[in-house]
Nucleic acid binder design. Sequence first.
RNA 1: GGGGGAGUGUCCCGAGUGGCAAAGGGGGCGGACUGUAAAUCCGCUGGCUUACGCCUUCGUAGGUUCGAGUCCUACCUCCCCCA
Length: 417
Amino acid sequence: MSAYKSDFLNVLASRGFIHQVSEPEALDALARTSKVTGYIGFDCTASSLHVGSLLPIMMLHWMQQTGHRPIALMGGGTTRVGDPSGKDESRKLLTDDMIAANLKGIRAVFAKFLKFEEAGGNAVMANNADWLNALNYIDFLRDIGRYFSINRMLAFDSVKLRLERQQELSFLEFNYMILQAYDFVELYRRHGCVLQLGGSDQWGNIVNGIDLGRRLHNAQLFALTAPLITTSSGAKMGKTAAGAVWLNADLVSPYDYWQYWRNTEDADVARFLKLFTVLPLDEVNRLAGLKDAEINEAKKVLATEATALVHGRAAADEAAATARTTFEEGGLGAGLPTIEVSRGELKTGLSVLATFVKAGLAASNGEVRRAIANNAILINDERVTDEKRMIGEADVTADGVVKLSLGRKRHVLLKPI
RNA sequence: GGGGGAGUGUCCCGAGUGGCAAAGGGGGCGGACUGUAAAUCCGCUGGCUUACGCCUUCGUAGGUUCGAGUCCUACCUCCCCCA
């Protein structure tokens, strides 16, 4: 199904990771005969990566699995500049403290997907602040800047779009692509890295690095980009009403993470199984063949496997079990999100409005009121019609909790302590 | 430096004659139908309030007015034309 001879490109291609490759034959040959070192840069713009970043991480994972060496590059330096690619407006400048904190949050995720030295693997974690922060402006301009043509930079999409839409592009951001190109070359020097992977929007930035490598060291470097993943309905991956689907457990619980994947649209199941799980393709194809209601089985596998990658097998199984008792048996899943209240408060009685807000199911009392009017509020699976309804000790079930539901999908347990 | 235009509901786009909590989309949430899917239809989509109502909101700060998103002044930001 794919024309590649190397395991590396074969696996990526057959699982749907490849959008564009520069000089595919040469890279294929290289990957067949030697250990390739490749990297992806991750900017530290938030305290956690989200589902959107999963695709590049999976590429690094497969890279290592097929016998090569992945580098996860933290953008400690480039985040101080801000990548204009795909952005309509300038990003707010992050303070160095924020960047440092974000970097810390992001870093931990990689150990789940890659084997670093401490785990007996060859994966490398790097931070471009290590070399970018030390640059001297004049030296940099003379050594690197001389190779960049403004004429050509203006033609890059990330720049062109801003100019065409008459949106501000600061000189600071304009320099991002130069720094990213420099990163590539620096990693080539330090680690013999010859491949940069990334999302399709990174193509231009990566190609710049290839050019620079050729000019400075006569090196042959390669680019490989992944397609932009949207759902079949065209929505971007990883955004829900509650916000981004973060990978860190303190931001999105394994249960909610599992639910995110469980609710995948039918048309996306096969594609997502290939991209976001490590199941063998045979198994993926079998699951993808399921039709109609049976495809729900495939969705559960997708949810559990995807959750296991990020949060571990135990958490994934627990999320699956919670979902089963909650949705299929109509019972109380022990793993549902839980909030605690004192018995004293419960004895006095809690208002429905305040409690649902406290449970995070609604943002304001008004929202709960509207939800009640829409028949969306349930206590112990019983519809609430009176917004003055109080929650008291009598509502505590035999399981020792009160089940709060917004609609049929979102549940929170209220636990007296 | 001169002339012209723009900034709207804290997700986005976008209408707005002095009576405006502010049209219409998209997105999101909920309901019906289903399979925790899609499509479709319906409802909701500033805060507080049982409610009358009160409060906050149209770039910022003042002003005119019974009343300002709308008119006036200054300022900020962006865009276009001229220099």
